[in-house]
Design a binder for these strands. Structure first.
Lengths: 208, 208
DNA sequence: TGCATGAAGGCACGAGTGTGCTAAAAAATA
DNA sequence: TATTTTTTAGCACACTCGTGCCTTCATGCA
């Protein structure tokens, strides 16, 4: 038998190279040659682990989606664990929502890559399935958060859906602005906007 | 002297071809050859009216921005013309906000093209200036709307900025979702979300 | 010590891109 | 009619892209 390398680890390294290229130069520069060079490999090696360019991109997409979902699920557990209407609960909610935004370097890469893939999926059929999955999963998390935040009897099923879509839209819009106009949409503005949005869910905000 | 053609009209035809290609196949397919074919011309003709590919794209970007801004300014005038806290006023506000969304075919093309250019501007320096201009101008319109909607004494300057950014983020998020997940984010859901957002600005919504 | 096999490296083809440059066509003026 | 200038058309070059296909290398087992 030949040299044994951890194939999964190699694939992960390549995916990380894809992420760096997308974050810096955009998805259209994530070609096999560019990815190989960024990963310190040759095209042939990359192609040994990924049958085609599409497979590499789809796999990268699924990795970033799983990473984001993992963080969201974890933060959602933290939220539920807190006593409602306390300062700690409010902070936990803000932390959860902050996972969508490019607040630090790692989050910024993920947000950037996620946005790039979702936008590309509109015209690139190979990415459509993963885009739908990510949308469903994230909407489910936000939906659960909304159900947790809104008093059960106070609103109808329709309102819950609308509020979930509204929060989701605001989050994606914030993320987009933070990525495209970082000089205007700073982390502080993001936090203010989120805090203002959350005002709807309890009579008076806990902190400013 | 040679054949006289309306150069500006020809340029406009080419720009329209660019819009159609972006709406259907995305910005990355808007090459000179594709644009020329879509416009029923040859590459040489397109290049006669636009010195380079970048100039064509930047000019197309500016056209779509101007078109969107024109609609927004017009709708903003309509809003101010209405008596506040009336049904007609509420409808005028919804109409203004609806200009951001792909609610009909023409709006959809503009929204799609606008999104594509703004996203591309992050990694394509030639588009950066126009992206900044569009962001400033649209933020100005939304800011004026917010000042008009919020009682002058009831909130500080900081709150006005935050609310403007929040509305802007929600609009862009809605637009994005309507473009990327049209089966979920229908025109009806968009309207519900906007109506819910506007609840903040007056005690009770006028219509549902 | 062989050698089969996974890993790595690379060549070449066709298709696509922007752009420099040239050449034909067409029509209003001299 | 002759000329001048815009418009239209197109060739050619260098580049990048994905991919099919082949070679070389290294290594763990027989």
């Amino acid at each position: 038998m030949p040299k044994i390398v951890d194939a999964e680890a190699r694939r992960q390294e390549v995916v990380e190279a894809v992420f760096r290229i997308i974050a810096v130069d955009g998805l259209e520069r994530a070609s096999l040659r560019e990815v190989a060079e960024e990963a310190g490999l040759v095209v042939g090696s990359v192609r040994h682990y990924f049958a085609s360019s599409d497979e590499l991109l789809v796999h990268s997409f699924s990795i970033v989606v799983d990473r984001i979902l993992g963080r969201l699920e974890s933060c959602l557990d933290d939220v539920i664990r807190q006593e409602p209407r306390t300062e700690a609960h409010h902070e936990a909610v803000l932390t959860l929502l902050g996972q969508f935004l490019p607040l630090d370097e790692e989050l910024a890469v993920d947000a950037c890559v996620w946005m790039a893939f979702r936008n590309a999926a509109r015209v690139k059929p190979a990415l459509a399935e993963e885009a739908a999955r990510s949308h469903r999963a994230v909407a489910a998390v936000v939906g659960r958060l909304i159900m947790h935040l809104m008093p059960a009897g106070g609103a109808g099923q329709q309102d819950l859906v609308t509020e979930a879509e509204r929060l989701l839209a605001t989050l994606d819009g914030l993320c987009m602005h933070a990525l495209l106009q970082p000089e205007w949409m700073t982390a502080e503005v993001c936090r203010d906007v989120l805090a203002s949005h959350l005002t709807v869910f309890h009579g008076v905000p806990h902190s400013r």
